[in-house]
Amino acid sequence: MDKFAAGLLVGCVMTFIAMRLLEFLRILWPWQRAMMSGAQVSLVSILRMRLKGCPVPFLVDAHSALVHSGDKIEMDQVEACYLAHKHEVNEDDMGEFLTMVRDFKRRGSGNV
């Protein structure tokens, strides 16, 4: 194998590794933020939300805010509310979404 082909192969492998590392960090950063804020969120839950196409940082921040305000709401309930009302959610208005999650749980729709 000549030097060009070897360099190309190494470059492709390094690019693949870098992309996988960045993808892992995209999962790890919201988890770390949740843990630092005192909200319990599992890495599996974050991965599941990403696979469903949910805005993970927004939902983690919402869950953290709910935990800090004293609400006993699980991350699954926040995610379920988002999925049920995702066309109504304005990601620029966290307060409106928090009210929506509280109402969702109060109606009993939060049992997942």
Rank of each mutant, 00 (worst) to 15 (best):
F4P: 03
A6N: 14
A6T: 14
G7Y: 08
G7T: 12
L8F: 04
L9H: 03
V10R: 01
V10G: 01
T15S: 10
F16I: 00
I17L: 04
M19C: 00
M19S: 01
M19G: 00
L22D: 03
F24H: 05
L28E: 13
W29N: 09
W29Q: 13
W31S: 04
W31E: 04
Q32D: 13
R33P: 06
A34D: 14
A34E: 05
G38V: 04
Q40M: 15
L43Q: 06
S45C: 11
I46Y: 09
R48H: 06
R48Q: 10
M49T: 11
M49N: 12
K52G: 05
G53N: 07
C54V: 15
C54H: 10
V56R: 06
V56I: 03
F58D: 07
F58N: 06
F58V: 14
L59A: 04
L59F: 01
V60Q: 09
D61V: 06
A62Y: 14
A62I: 02
H63F: 05
H63K: 09
S64G: 07
S64K: 08
S64N: 09
S64T: 08
L66W: 05
S69Y: 07
S69I: 07
S69W: 15
I73F: 13
I73E: 03
E74D: 10
V78D: 00
A80V: 09
L83V: 09
L83N: 09
A84H: 13
A84G: 12
H87G: 08
E88C: 03
D93F: 00
M94Q: 08
M94E: 04
G95Q: 15
E96H: 08
T99L: 12
T99I: 12
M100E: 10
V101S: 10
V101H: 04
R102H: 06
R102I: 00
R106G: 11
R107L: 01
R107E: 09
G108N: 06
N111P: 04
V112N: 09
